[in-house]
Simulated assay, not measured.
Amino acid sequence: MSTFTILLGGDLIRTPRLDRQVEGSRVIAADAGIGHAQMLGLVPELWVGDFDSVPADLPADLAAVPRQTFPAEKDKTDGELAIAAALERGATRLVLAGAFGGKRADHAFLHLALGLRLAEAGMDVFLTSGAQEGVPLLPGRAGFDYADGTLFSILGFSELSGLTVTGAKWPLDKVEVAFGSSLTISNEVKFGKTGGRLDIALGHGRALLLAHPYPLPES
């Protein structure tokens, strides 16, 4: 498996879990995402974009990263171009770091939708901000290693049918979920006395698991 970490321009915090997830991967930065490389102690092999949002005072090793430059007026975002570069280099797994938050809600939405599209094409995709993690959910069954008490939501990108959730405070058994329903928002991993893990099965539709492996900040 060839894992590429794509450094995007959204929010990102460094955690031990994130360090493990990107360890040993090849790295490509999308424009302002180069700023995350410094925080994570990574040096990308490629820096992609129109370079309209380059962080100031980059260290010499990051400023010297080879660039693939595109015009500001283009048909794809810098993030999508960085992903395309990783696929050209043989990526079989993508970690989209900095996929959430940031100043552009439209870009954050695109990252979620793009993650689903890539998963439908057979790519192993993982989205993260360090504090939040996203995994595309397609028809089938998947298991997750989150700790007891982890907050999670299932974001439906279509009507869902046959959705089963076990290992949760509010389990579901082959339910139908209308598009736009809040039924699957704010659940919690709950193993019970017998232990176990969070398991999700989906009969039809497309969704994204959004989990918070770390406690949410106090409001």
Rank of each mutant, 00 (worst) to 15 (best):
A84E: 06
I13G: 11
P66T: 07
I83C: 03
A99Q: 01
R141M: 14
T3C: 10
M39Y: 07
G196P: 14
Y146N: 07
G203V: 08
E23S: 14
S153Q: 00
E159A: 08
S153G: 03
F4M: 10
G90F: 04
E159L: 06
D75Q: 08
L40R: 10
L12T: 04
L12F: 13
A86Y: 00
P139M: 10
R67I: 08
G143S: 12
A56R: 13
L110H: 13
T128C: 06
Q132P: 09
M39W: 11
I28K: 00
V175Y: 07
I200L: 05
L151Y: 13
Y146A: 01
L96I: 09
T150Q: 03
L163V: 11
F126N: 04
D124V: 04
A63P: 12
A113Y: 13
R206F: 02
L112M: 15
S181M: 13
R206A: 10
G90H: 02
G192F: 11
K169P: 14
G35M: 10
G79D: 02
L46H: 01
Y146S: 01
G130V: 09
R89G: 05
E159P: 05
R20S: 14
R89N: 06
T164D: 10
G79Q: 04
T150N: 01
S186G: 12
D19Y: 09
P44R: 00
E159H: 14
E133P: 00
L18Y: 04
F179A: 12
P171M: 14
T15C: 10
K190M: 15
A131L: 15
H204D: 08
P59D: 13
G192H: 14
E120Q: 15
L127R: 03
V95R: 13
P217S: 09
A99Y: 00
V48Q: 00
P55N: 03
D31G: 06
Y146L: 08
A99E: 04
E120G: 14
L209S: 03
E133N: 09
L198W: 05
D145S: 10
E218L: 05
A97Q: 13
A97M: 13
V48D: 00
G192Y: 15
D50F: 08
